[in-house]
């Protein structure tokens, strides 16, 4: 079996290549753009040069041509916004659907989440299987490959996007993935100033501060990169303290693999109390200052 790997990053290319080797005996990696071309990650790397001013997504027609020439049975894609577009266009071209955000790979099927984790669904592609999958899934596997690099001929899209500007996003620098203890704030915080109560708790616990998705949406009280859940971070800290969070599945899948789940909520019927190890029923404004005092 032959597999095609589409990755934006060097490390991602290696990890997905290693994962693809578990199912395929030939691995071809496609890299797009002017970054460093990864070596030793596949049997062959096909490099797509982006013409000056082209938007990454517009490499889709070139990728379709590579797909036709290589005729792989399996495609592994790093789940980035750019590559999701390229994978979607490839799926339309190959008359299939991408199986997205794969949790677990079978030989001929893959499992992903349904309704934000309410269920897990095992799917089988009737034609070519195109999977988006987190490269970290294969972090333990040895990376191997040759230094063979081929240049692809650019296939111009009929109606390209015009790139006006690219601006880097300034990141807060917080890396919750590495935090042993995480405090997450939810809509139970009525105003931005109240977040200082959560920050006080973080200081006592040596915790990183995260949140539920609504606090980053429209509100922008906290940076987008710290929200936890199915569409955000999936964490496995030792202790997770959810404060003013109701416990919707879309949020809980991001923290339910924590060692201990702790919840603070004023509603004793909040769903989160059914999914935690330790719970405190009380109002944030009263219990957080008292808790910080007691710790």
């Amino acid at each position: 079996m032959k597999a095609l790997v589409l990755a934006e990053g060097f490390e991602a290319a290696g990890k997905l290549g290693a994962g693809a080797r578990g199912l395929a005996d030939e691995v071809v990696c496609v890299v797009i753009g002017e970054g460093q071309i990864p070596r030793g990650v596949a049997d062959k790397v096909i490099h797509v040069s982006l013409p000056q001013g082209a938007v990454y997504d517009d490499a889709a027609d070139t990728v379709n041509a590579i797909f036709d020439a290589q005729a792989p049975e399996l495609v592994f894609v790093e789940p980035t916004r750019h590559l999701k577009v390229i994978a979607g266009r490839l799926a339309a071209h190959a008359k299939t659907s991408v199986i997205t955000d794969v949790l677990e790979l079978g030989v001929e099927s893959a499992t992903n989440m349904y309704f934000g984790g309410v269920a897990h669904r095992r799917l089988k592609a009737l034609g070519t299987a195109i999977y988006t999958i987190n490269p970290e899934t294969f972090a333990e596997l040895p990376v191997s490959g040759t230094d063979t690099v081929e240049e692809a001929a650019w296939v111009a899209p009929p109606r390209p996007l015009e790139l006006v500007e690219v601006r880097p996003i300034e990141k807060s620098g917080v890396d919750l993935m590495k935090a042993e203890v995480v405090v997450a704030a939810g809509r139970g915080f009525a105003e931005e100033g109240e977040l200082d109560l959560a920050r006080g708790l973080c200081d006592k616990l040596g915790a990183g501060l995260g949140c539920s998705r609504p606090l980053t949406e429209g509100l922008n009280w906290l940076p987008t990169e710290v929200y936890i859940g199915v569409s955000g971070l999936m964490l496995t800290p030792k202790v997770y303290v959810a404060v003013g969070i109701s416990g919707q599945m879309q949020h809980m899948v991001g923290c339910n693999r924590a060692g201990t789940v702790v919840a603070i909520n004023k509603d004793k019927n909040a769903p989160i109390f059914k999914q935690c190890d330790l719970g405190l029923v009380g109002d944030i404004k009263d219990v957080l200052p008292a808790l910080v005092g007691a710790l």
Partner: peptide
């Protein structure tokens, strides 16, 4: 035209949590 087949769809096993819930209004709760 459907292109994928659903082999299985079910809720995952949830980790059994201890669920010790303390009411802040109780004496010595905090």
């Amino acid at each position: 035209t459907g292109t994928l087949e659903v082999l299985d769809c079910r809720a995952p096993q949830q980790a059994d949590r201890a669920r010790v819930i303390i009411d802040a209004a109780e004496e010595g709760a905090l």
